[in-house]
């Protein structure tokens, strides 16, 4: 599990007794963000009517996220497009950078995904209350439910609402960690079985790497689309 350990890089930074040192995790966050910014810079540098490859890819990402938001949360969610786009790109690039050998996967840390999920959860709740006032609480009371079941359903709805940040963060973190651990285990088998028996786990490793790249994209997509769905609940209150 050495690949998941966080260690300090450079001097120790302590503010008010809290250790805020720059770590390898921070470094890979910076790397991912820089890659995103570089990609977007190259993708929006030239204003061509017929785009070149990198511009085309940037525009595909743009329209992909735009379509995702308008499909799930409608036109009211347009002001939140930059946030969801940044979120999607950040998670995607952190996952993808983590697929490189010897790199660090930022999103395989529960604290990182939890911070993001909590921020989304709190922001969505605040947006819901700003848009609908106390009527937003009706999200816990679905319509068309028999009166006998209503208390039970309401409790279940509240629990499911409150467990959103947990499920959102754990889903991403667990997927990333499990994938990397599995790759590590198969890599260990390759080494321990040697040149005679190592070919089978090696081929598994190759296949799993492909799978992990798919998972890296998929989890970023899931993270972003769940954010859209939560946002949709807050913006268009139709329960």
């Amino acid at each position: 599990m050495q690949q998941f350990t966080v260690h300090r890089i450079g001097p120790e930074i302590k503010i008010a007794g809290i250790d805020l040192s720059f770590t390898n995790a921070s470094m890979f966050m910076v790397i991912s963000a820089s890659v995103i910014l570089l990609f977007l810079f190259l993708g929006s540098k030239e204003k061509k009517i017929i785009p070149n490859k990198i511009q085309l890819i940037a525009e595909i990402f743009y329209s992909f996220v735009a379509k995702m938001i308008s499909d799930t949360a409608g036109s009211k969610a347009k002001p939140y497009f930059p946030f969801i786009f940044s979120l999607f790109m950040f998670v995607l690039f952190c996952n993808m950078v983590g697929m490189l050998p010897y790199s660090f996967t930022v999103t395989s840390h529960i604290i990182v995904t939890l911070i993001m999920a909590l921020f989304i959860f709190i922001a969505v709740t605040i947006i819901g209350f700003i848009k609908h006032g106390f009527k937003y609480l009706s999200i816990f009371v679905p319509s068309g439910v028999p009166a006998v079941l209503l208390p039970l359903i309401t409790i279940i709805e509240i629990i499911s609402y409150l467990s959103r940040p947990v499920s959102l963060s754990v889903r991403l973190f667990a997927n990333m960690m499990a994938g990397h651990t599995m790759l590590k285990v198969f890599g260990g088998f390759v080494v321990s079985l040697g040149i005679l028996g190592g070919w089978l786990p090696l081929s598994f490793s190759v296949a799993l790497t492909g799978l992990e790249i798919l998972v890296a994209f998929l989890q970023a997509y899931v993270f972003a689309i769940l954010t859209c769905i939560y946002l949709n609940d807050a913006l268009n209150l139709h329960h």
Binding site: S21, M29, V30, A33, F83, S86, I111, V112, I115
Partner: peptide, 22 residues
């Protein structure tokens, strides 16, 4: 041990990323 650091740097990096993207 490094939770606070990770949270802090995540917020900083993501804020910079968000502002420059948007």
């Amino acid at each position: 041990k490094y939770w606070a650091s990770q949270a802090f740097w995540l917020i900083v990096v993501f804020a910079v990323l968000y502002i420059s993207i948007s």
